[in-house]
């Protein structure tokens, strides 16, 4: 046995023995009921926010301001990353290898399924678990899958460029901010929900601003991570030429 395996066995035995000693000596009780604050949120979410989903209600209504500022942090981090690795050269790749035709066909089916499920998760976020964050990350995975299987150049040929993605992202963030600020014109506080937005539209429950927030957050997260994927997949030769040309 190598030293790593012996270290792992020592670690496992140590962990189990520490847990056993603590359990025998102190005999702690596992928690059996939710704390009072959690019970408040569970009991009042349908009345306060008119959303059956307590988590989305907390994310976008009870603590909505918090989430909007975190979205700004997300925007800053992605813009900072893209600013570090920017290039002035136009990217065009001559060789396109891609993967085998079996992988291409399968990926076409899977990408369609991922896009469908991402939209379903994002637009149903106020009724079932899900929302803008998981849906947006799921949609970004389609771009992440297309890049190695069909190559970066095929995406660029289809018109999916990083400048356009960043534009979509900026528009989505602006819309998110507008949804947050719009109640001010009627003299209400920013990020108010049910006093300004209707809870039902055409007989369907949209839980006020929750549906809008989920939609715009979905677009913002998806386009941001897709832009990161496109920047990461630019071959290293482009940057090497840029550094050489600059000197």
């Amino acid at each position: 046995m190598s030293r790593r395996t012996i270290g792992l066995i020592v670690l496992l035995v140590g962990v189990v023995s520490i847990a056993l000693t603590t359990f025998i000596v102190f005999n702690p009780e596992a928690p059996k009921s939710v704390r009072e604050l959690g019970k408040y949120y569970i009991a009042n979410t349908t009345r306060d926010v008119s959303s059956p989903e307590a988590v989305t209600a907390i994310v976008w209504d009870y603590r909505g301001l918090d989430t909007i500022y975190e979205t700004v942090v997300l925007y800053m981090a992605i813009v900072g990353g893209l600013a570090i690795s920017t290039t002035t050269r136009k990217v065009s790749l001559k060789t396109r290898t891609g993967l085998t035709s079996i992988a291409r066909t399968g990926t076409r089916i899977i990408v369609l399924l991922i896009a469908t499920i991402a939209f379903a998760i994002a637009l149903h976020g106020h009724l079932t678990p899900g929302g803008g964050f998981p849906g947006g990350s799921a949609l970004a995975i389609t771009v992440m899958l297309i890049v190695p299987v069909y190559t970066l150049q095929s995406l660029l040929d289809q018109g999916v460029s990083s400048t356009r993605l960043i534009a979509v992202r900026g528009l989505a963030l602006t819309a998110l901010g507008l949804v947050a600020i719009l109640p001010v014109i009627k003299g209400l506080e920013a990020v108010t929900n049910l006093k300004f937005y209707p809870s039902h539209v055409a007989g369907m429950l949209i839980s006020g601003s929750l549906w809008l927030y989920n939609l715009f957050e979905f677009l913002a997260v998806a386009s941001g991570f897709a832009a990161v994927a496109l920047y990461l997949s630019i071959p290293e030769e482009v940057y090497r030429e840029e550094i050489k040309g600059g000197e």
Binding site: V55, A77, G80, G81
Partner: peptide, 19 residues
């Protein structure tokens, strides 16, 4: 609800570190 946003923000910050 607190962790939900943290995961996505964490990925964005990690992407910045990766760049």
């Amino acid at each position: 609800a607190l962790v939900l946003t943290g995961i996505v923000i964490g990925l964005a910050v990690n992407a910045l570190i990766a760049f």
